[in-house]
């Protein structure tokens, strides 16, 4: 079980308190109706799924409750950093 640094609580907490929430920085468009079918398909279904560095979201669901972003290496399963929602991609 990993330790995950919650950027809101400011400490590393056991993974069991967290829930994974998919790729980060996939912003919902302000006006989805302006999207073509292809653009909407990309937004809904297409994800980077990289081998290596991955920007992803987690929620400290059994802690402070906040969603936040993280950079995790999908090969080593190590977190490089975590940062608050709304902050620019790291």
């Amino acid at each position: 079980m990993m330790l995950i640094h919650c950027p809101y609580c400011g400490e590393r907490r056991p993974e069991i308190e967290f829930a994974y929430a998919g790729e980060a920085h996939v912003a919902r468009p302000v006006d989805p109706s302006a999207y073509t079918d292809e653009e909407w398909e990309r937004f809904l279904f297409i994800r980077a799924n990289p081998r290596g560095r991955h920007n992803e979201r987690w929620r400290h669901i059994h802690g402070c409750g906040r969603f936040f972003n993280a950079v995790r290496d999908t090969v080593t399963d190590k977190f490089e950093t975590t940062y608050k929602a709304g902050e620019p991609r790291k």
């Binding site: 829930a19 929430a21 919902r28 669901i61 409750g65 906040r66 969603f67 929602a85 709304g86």
Partner: peptide
């Protein structure tokens, strides 16, 4: 609740 929190916190903060 998790889905609503997700939209609230990340799409419409």
């Amino acid at each position: 609740l998790n889905m609503m929190e997700d939209y609230l916190q990340t799409e419409w903060p």
